[in-house]
């Protein structure tokens, strides 16, 4: 009989070990794309003399063998060094990421928190009022919210609340402390996740409420509220917890759109500008950075799942 703490530790070790190949895949794929595409970064659009070309190659270590370049790349990454930006000569990629990240993080975390609160509330409400008009409304809302893409929804919200009704600013981030600037972008970013979480938690709550142990709890004379909060909530929330991994990826992808639509100075904007200007190192740096965040978040979610479900990791 292994104790629960031991079981948890072994789960954590297993999950961390599982995350390493994914991280390597991200780094390696990015590196290979950067180095193996025909042409190389300096070929297109720049007319430079062979000497300048050679100097540039040397400056960026492009003249070394591939394996040496790869090892150097890994070593730099391990030190948090994503290299210089190709187009913003005065900044390193690390500096640019550090500048944009707090804004993006705030936007993303707020959207995630909002999505969890509203999504779970809507899903539970739908499950408890199953097949009544209010439940149909929840289902229809979450269907539309899941399917209408961010880049259609965000401008529409701006048009309605920012331009037509003039309730909220239509864009910008203010000085970073003004709530009014954050409401629309956070809602727009959260909306697809609210819908997915509402959909998931509605289904899982309906399933949980049909479990025989819920009848046991009712037979024990426990009130409805306690049955819901203590007995049904655990099974109902587990699918939502598993969804948090994909949700993070979705929020990161969505934030690129939202930052663009609302002119928010986060990583997403740097990323799009860099992609348009073909700033290879910045784009690759952001891909590796965001990839790492997604992997770490998935890891946390896996461990959280193990904490919530005592059957995970049993002998």
């Amino acid at each position: 009989m292994i104790s629960r703490a031991d079981a948890m530790i072994s789960i954590v070790i297993k999950r961390v070990a599982g995350a390493i190949p994914t991280l390597f895949a991200i780094v390696t794929l990015t590196f290979l794309m950067m180095r193996l595409t025909p042409g190389g970064p300096f070929d297109r659009g720049h007319a430079v003399s062979p000497e300048v070309q050679a100097n540039l190659m040397r400056a960026y270590h492009l003249d070394e063998p591939l394996t040496a370049q790869y090892l150097r790349y890994l070593k730099d990454l391990a030190h948090g060094d994503f290299g210089p930006s190709f187009t913003n000569k005065d900044f390193t990629v690390t500096q640019l990421i550090r500048q944009g990240f707090p804004v993006s993080l705030q936007l993303g975390l707020s959207a995630m928190a909002l999505a969890l609160v509203i999504g779970l509330a809507l899903g539970t409400y739908g499950a408890l009022h199953r097949n009544r008009p209010s439940d149909h409304a929840v289902v229809a809302f979450s269907l539309v919210g899941t399917i209408v893409p961010n880049f259609v929804m965000a401008p529409l919200l701006t048009l309605l609340f920012g331009v037509t009704l003039r309730w909220l600013p239509a864009g910008g981030w203010g000085d970073g402390h003004q709530l009014s600037y954050k409401i629309l972008p956070v809602i727009a970013l959260a909306l697809p996740r609210i819908s997915s979480i509402a959909r998931l938690s509605r289904t899982s709550m309906i399933e949980a409420l049909q479990m025989p142990y819920i009848r046991t709890a009712r037979a024990k004379g426990l009130p409805r509220r306690l049955i819901l909060l203590r007995h049904a909530s655990r099974a109902a929330i587990l699918p939502v917890v598993s969804y948090l991994g994909p949700a993070t990826a979705g929020i990161i992808t969505g934030s690129i759109i939202i930052e663009q639509v609302f002119s928010i100075p986060g990583i997403g904007r740097y990323f799009v500008d860099a992609a348009i200007n073909r700033d290879y190192t910045l784009v690759s740096g952001v891909v590796v950075f965001y990839g790492t965040i997604i992997v770490i978040f998935n890891l946390i979610v896996d461990i959280l799942y193990g904490v919530l479900d005592p059957r995970v990791g049993k002998r």
Binding site: T22, A25, M34, A275, V283, N298
Partner: peptide
């Protein structure tokens, strides 16, 4: 599975830059 957990839109963007 590994590829599945990657943020693939980013790789599309990366690919379109190079290609």
């Amino acid at each position: 599975d590994i590829l599945y957990s990657l943020p693939f839109v980013f790789f599309v963007i990366l690919l379109t830059i190079y290609a």
